[in-house]
C-alpha cells in the first residue's frame, strides 16, 4: 500500500479469525512451494511457531524496546501536567510525587514533551526480540514477545521493518481481529484467510473478512479440514465473491505430520503438489490485483 517510486514486492498476510485453523501450516507450506525466493515472517509474536518447523539457526537477533518515562524527583515540581495529559494512567501525580506504571504506558512520549521542568526522561525497556534465519529459499523472520508484556503491535512492527523490499513476503498473522492482527495486515497487499467448515470457523471467518474489508485489502480463502460442508461455507464464499484457492481434506495424516513439526508438502508429496498449485493460483490473483512478485 501507499508506495512511492519503485514498486515493492508483494506482502501476503495469512490470517484467520479463529485460532488453530492452520495459518502457520499454510504459511510454511506455501513458502516451501512458492517456487522462488520468498520471505516468511512469523508475526504471531505471542506464540511464534514457524521455526519449530524450519528449525533454522537464527542470527542478527535484535532486542525490541519501548521507551518508558522516568521521573527525576529533584526536578519534578509535582505540577501534574504529565498525569493530566496521559490517557492511560501510565503516569500518576500524587501531591509532590509522580509515579510511573510501565505496564499501562503506551510509550507516546507526551509526558516528556509536556513536562515544564524537564524532569522526565525515557529509558528503553525490553518488550521482545526479533531475529532472522535462512532455510533454503526461505528468508525467515521471527518476532517474539517477552512473557508478561502486554503490548504486542510494536514487536510486530519491528518484524515488518526487517522485511526486504525486493523479495515477496508471507506474513503469518496472529488469530483474532484486534490490534495485533491489524498491525500485521497494515501495509500488506493481499490476505489469505484460512478457515474450516465448522460453525466456529465460519463465524470467525466473517469477522476476519470484515476486518480485511475495513482495511480495503483484497483476499482469498484456504479451506482446511474440508469435509462435508454442513455450515454453508462455500456458499458464503461464492456470495461474498471470495475465491477459494485451496481445499485441504480433513486428513488425519496432515494433523500427525504437523504435530511432529514436519512440513506436509515434503512429508506427503500429494499435498506438496496441492501447495504448488496454491502458489500458482495465488500468483495469478496477485498479478490481477496489480501486485509485484
Amino acid at each position: 500500500m501507499a508506495v512511492e517510486g519503485i514498486k515493492k514486492a508483494v506482502r501476503i498476510a495469512v490470517a484467520s479469525g479463529k485460532g488453530g485453523t492452520g495459518k502457520t501450516m499454510v504459511s510454511l507450506n506455501l513458502a516451501a512451494m512458492f517456487g522462488q525466493p520468498v520471505q516468511l515472517a512469523d508475526c504471531d509474536v505471542e506464540e511464534p511457531n514457524v521455526n519449530l518447523f524450519l528449525r533454522c539457526e537464527l542470527f542478527d537477533r535484535r532486542e525490541v524496546t519501548m521507551l518508558f518515562p522516568e521521573v527525576d524527583v529533584i526536578r519534578c515540581t509535582g505540577c501534574g501536567a504529565c498525569a493530566k495529559l496521559c490517557q492511560f494512567h501510565g503516569i500518576v501525580s500524587l501531591g509532590a510525587r509522580t509515579l510511573v506504571f510501565p505496564e499501562l504506558c503506551h510509550g507516546c512520549g507526551g509526558c516528556l514533551r509536556i513536562c515544564p521542568t524537564g524532569a522526565i526522561t525515557e529509558r528503553p525497556h525490553l518488550i521482545g526480540q526479533v531475529a532472522v534465519g535462512q532455510h533454503g529459499n526461505i528468508r525467515f523472520l521471527e518476532g517474539r514477545l517477552e512473557v508478561g508484556v502486554s503490548v504486542v503491535p510494536p514487536v510486530i512492527r519491528a518484524v515488518r521493518e526487517l522485511l526486504l523490499d525486493d523479495i515477496p513476503a508471507i506474513l503469518d498473522a496472529p488469530p483474532g481481529t484486534s490490534c495485533s492482527v491489524v498491525a500485521t495486515l497494515r501495509e500488506s497487499d493481499y490476505v489469505l484467510l484460512v478457515t474450516d467448515p465448522t460453525p466456529f470457523g465460519l463465524h470467525d471467518l466473517k469477522l476476519a473478512v470484515a476486518t480485511v474489508r475495513q482495511l480495503k485489502l483484497p483476499c482469498a480463502i484456504v479451506v482446511n479440514r474440508a469435509g462435508e460442508d454442513q455450515v454453508g461455507l462455500y456458499h458464503y464464499c461464492r456470495t461474498e465473491k471470495l475465491p477459494v484457492l485451496l481445499s485441504l481434506s480433513d486428513d488425519r495424516q496432515i494433523a500427525e505430520v504437523t504435530s511432529r513439526g514436519d512440513l506436509v508438502a515434503r512429508a506427503l508429496p500429494e499435498y506438496g503438489l496441492m501447495f504448488a498449485e496454491l502458489a500458482a493460483k495465488l500468483k495469478q490473483e496477485l498479478l490481477t490485483a496489480g501486485c509485484q512478485l
Binding site: E46, L145, G148, V149, S150, P174, P175, S180, R260, G261
Partner: peptide
C-alpha cells in the same frame, strides 16, 4: 482468548485456577 498478550493477561490475573487446554503437537 489465545496467545499471551494484553487480553490474556486481563483474563488471567487474579483467577483461582487457569486450565490450559493444549494439543499434542510441537506448537502445542
Amino acid at each position: 482468548p489465545p496467545g499471551i498478550g494484553c487480553p490474556v493477561i486481563a483474563s488471567l490475573s487474579g483467577v483461582s485456577l487457569a486450565l490450559v487446554v493444549t494439543e499434542p503437537s510441537v506448537s502445542g
